Amino acid sequence: MVDAAFFGAGATPPTPLPAGVEQPETVQALTQKRWEVLALSTAGCRLLADAPEAVCACGSVLLPSDWSCLTARQVKAERVVSCGLSSRDSLTFSSMGDGDAVVCVQRVLIKPDGGQVEPQELPLGCLGSQTEDLLVVVGLGLLL
């Protein structure tokens, strides 16, 4: 079973989390163990940044690219998957339309079991307003 965390400032995810996925309720709970995969939403990054003494350890971290500065201070990760609208991000959108989008995996992603997610494009039938958070969720699905 893979330990993973989706941390979104206490917000309930829109769908039930799969078996083996945890959602810590506090920043302190987030720092109590080493996570195999840590997925941080924008709200989760903000909460972590507001607790500068908190340090998280993980194998892979997925986070919006605007918050990549956390990996230098508070998130100690073996692999960083940045999610955003920049061509430098590991996960981005290659196209976005009215209500749909195409997610682009721009480089090989290493899964916790050692497998790989190859660069590819994935059409999505829906597009929410929190695009970077949507990329984090898609990335979490790809890694797990």
Rank of each mutant, 00 (worst) to 15 (best):
Val138Ala: 02
Asp113Phe: 02
Ser87Ala: 15
Leu38Asn: 06
Thr42Arg: 13
Val27Asp: 07
Gly10Pro: 00
Ala49Asp: 14
Pro64Arg: 09
Gly128Phe: 02
Ser94Asp: 12
Pro16Met: 02
Gln106Phe: 02
Pro123Thr: 07
Leu91Met: 02
Glu53Trp: 03
Arg88Phe: 03
Phe93Thr: 08
Leu62Asn: 01
Asp113Thr: 05
Thr71Ile: 14
Val61Leu: 11
Val55Met: 10
Asp50Cys: 04
Ala101Tyr: 08
Cys58Gln: 10
Ala72Gly: 14
Leu17Ala: 15
Leu85Glu: 14
Val61Trp: 10
Ala77His: 10
Leu140Pro: 04
Pro52Phe: 04
Lys76Gln: 14
Pro16Phe: 01
Arg79Thr: 15
Ala9His: 11
Ala72Tyr: 10
Gln32Phe: 03
Leu85Val: 02
Arg34Met: 03
Arg46Pro: 00
Arg79Trp: 06
Arg79Gln: 14
Met96Ala: 14
Ala11Gly: 02
Gln28Pro: 00
Ala72Arg: 15
Glu22Pro: 00
Trp67Ile: 05
Ser95Ile: 05
Glu121Asn: 11
Ser68Ala: 15
Arg107Phe: 01
Ala19Ile: 06
Glu53Ser: 15
Gly59His: 12
Ala39Met: 02
Asp98Ser: 14
Leu124Trp: 09
Pro14Ser: 12
Val105Arg: 04
Ala57Asp: 14
Leu38Arg: 05
Met1Asp: 04
Cys104Asp: 14
Pro112Ser: 13
Gly99Gln: 07
Leu40Pro: 00
Gln32Ile: 00
Gly20Ser: 10
Gly125Ile: 02
Trp35His: 13
Phe6Val: 07
Asp3Lys: 12
Val37Leu: 15
Cys45His: 05
Gly114Val: 07
Gly8Met: 07
Thr71Glu: 09
Gln116Pro: 00
Asp89Glu: 11
Leu47Ser: 13
Glu25Tyr: 02
Pro123Cys: 09
Thr42Met: 03
Cys45Tyr: 04
Leu142Met: 06
Glu53Lys: 11
Val117Cys: 04
Thr42Ala: 15
Val103Ala: 09
Ser129Thr: 13
Leu109Ile: 01
Ala5Arg: 03
Leu70Arg: 00
Pro52Val: 03
Glu25Met: 08
Ser68Pro: 00
Gln106Cys: 14
Cys126Ala: 09
Pro16Ser: 12
Leu63Phe: 11
Gln106Lys: 14
Gly44Ala: 06
Gly141Gln: 09
Gly44Thr: 09
Cys104Pro: 00
Ala43Arg: 13
Val80Cys: 13
Ala57Glu: 15
